[in-house]
């Protein structure tokens, strides 16, 4: 019982914990910024799915979506904010704690 209560004390960031968003944040973590096409190719998400997940991450303050122009055509780049990088680092620590605490 004590072990179960200890497990429940580990708080998981559910914004990042969702599988598609986890892969998305992982890809954004290792680069400076990326556009939608790169993220779609890397995560195998459709445009609609990607937009939906990025919106959630943006609402949480974890990503910044910058709309710019390349020539005269719109171009959108996505980058993790400092809060997003901190949150991802914290999530990694949380998962390590959680998995390390599980019995063999």
């Amino acid at each position: 019982m004590k072990r179960t209560r200890e497990l429940h004390r580990v708080e998981i960031d559910r914004v990042i914990h969702e599988p598609a968003r986890l892969v998305l944040v992982a890809h954004l973590y290792v680069v400076e910024s990326a556009d939608y096409v790169f993220l779609m190719q890397s995560t195998n998400l459709t445009w609609g799915n990607l937009s939906s997940h990025l919106l959630k991450l943006e609402e949480a303050g974890y990503v910044e979506i910058v709309k710019d122009f390349v020539g005269r055509k719109p171009h959108t780049m996505v980058k993790l904010t400092a809060a997003g990088r901190t949150a991802f680092d914290a999530y990694r620590r949380q998962m390590k704690e959680l998995l390390a605490d599980l019995p063999e």
């Binding site: 680069v31 400076e32 556009d35 096409v37 790169f38 779609m40 190719q41 780049m77």
Partner: peptide
């Protein structure tokens, strides 16, 4: 580029 997209890599 239309297939790969654009990305800026880390420092």
């Amino acid at each position: 580029l239309p297939r790969l997209g654009r990305v800026k890599f880390s420092t």
